[in-house]
């Protein structure tokens, strides 16, 4: 079996695979993480400190996103994005939105729900004494959040957020369903063109495995080092 494994097809298309496919995947991962964390933090803060009505809407959003399959959400935004574009730009007809843009929109909005849960847990894990001390000094609620609570929450939650990013990284493979040119998409193209499904899919699996393993061991080491210690109250 192994002697017919065509390493050559991997070598020949390696440049294409990495330059185009892996880059798409990594770019999507990085930008969606950024957007997801920002939006997720906003959602978490709104749920915990915002007016009740807004908080309930945020909660509804988070729970809805977490109840739906990512594949479905990918389809939703793939078809919805042009209409959103039309609404934003006040055009006459739906605005064609590129695959990357629609994917980025999808993943940012989807993962924000998951990041918001992480941030929410992080904020709630900060002892009440910290908030009390900050308020006693005269800081406004927004300042307390910005200068005391969030920095500590983020520091505590960094390992979990890293894990969530790794999950995001693996989730991006699902853009396959809208024929996106991510790592799996490109590999699939090569596989069908050259008739080498085995080599291509095994290669993709190996790349995902390698990157994920490295990233999660880094997260593990981070977790061992970064836990903030609060003096016993």
């Amino acid at each position: 079996m192994l002697d017919s494994f065509d390493f050559d097809v991997i070598r020949r298309s390696l440049g294409h695979l990495l330059r185009d496919g892996l880059t798409f995947t990594l770019k999507l991962t990085a930008l969606a993480t950024l957007g997801g964390v920002v939006l997720g933090t906003l959602l978490a803060v709104l749920r915990l400190r915002g007016p009740a009505f807004i908080g309930r809407i945020a909660a509804l959003y988070v729970n809805a996103m977490r109840s739906l399959p990512l594949v479905l959400v990918i389809f939703w935004f793939f078809f919805l994005a042009p209409y959103i574009g039309q609404w934003i730009v006040h055009a006459e007809r739906p605005v064609p939105v590129g695959i990357f843009a629609s994917s980025l929109l999808t993943f940012t909005l989807f993962e924000a729900a998951y990041f918001s849960e992480v941030v929410r847990a992080g904020i709630q894990s900060i002892p009440q004494g910290q908030v009390a001390a900050a308020e006693a000094v005269g800081l406004s609620p927004a300042q307390v959040m910005r200068y005391v609570v969030l920095p500590q929450a983020f520091r505590n939650m960094l390992p979990i957020m890293l894990t969530q990013t790794i999950v995001l990284f693996q989730d991006t493979s699902l853009v396959y369903v809208i024929s996106a040119p991510d790592l799996l998409g490109v590999a699939s193209q090569v596989a069908h063109r050259d008739g080498r499904l085995v080599e291509m899919y095994v290669f993709v699996a190996a790349v995902y495995f390698g990157i994920s393993l490295l990233a999660s061991s880094a997260a593990g080491r981070l977790q061992a080092r970064s836990a903030l210690v609060h003096p016993p109250t």
Binding site: Q170, S173, L184, A205, Y208, S212
Partner: peptide, 12 residues
Amino acid sequence: FRNVPLLVQLFL
């Protein structure tokens, strides 16, 4: 099983 995306596993 944790470090390879589900989609890739299904393809395999």
